[in-house]
Amino acid sequence: MDAIFKALADPTRRKLLDRLFRKQGQTLTELIDGLDMRRQSATKHLAVLEEAQLVTCQWHGREKLHYLNPVPIAEINRRWLDKFSGDRAAAILNLRDALQENDNE
């Protein structure tokens, strides 16, 4: 579990996860398109994310596609959140999202 939190403790890596959340199955080129990030740097960050199992890869011919793997996050959810009822937590998150919507867009 240390690996998950270490991986999430970096804004660049969270940004990469955000991009995969929006669109699954991206190549490295696609993933860093429009970002001020070198391939080499992105590769290192992705290796940390893979180590933490937050990103998983599939080969399609010669293309390596990256996917956000939400299973470790579901494990965190199971450990500390389930007891507080998923319904209630989801309701609060929805409320927060609704309130923050204007800020994010």
């Binding site: 699954q24 199992q53 998983t56 596609l65 793997n69 939400p70 299973v71």
Partner: peptide, 12 residues
């Protein structure tokens, strides 16, 4: 489009 949509992985 033949790319997988969702890929999940875990070690058990």
């Amino acid at each position: 489009m033949s790319k997988p949509e969702f890929v999940y992985m875990t070690l058990i």
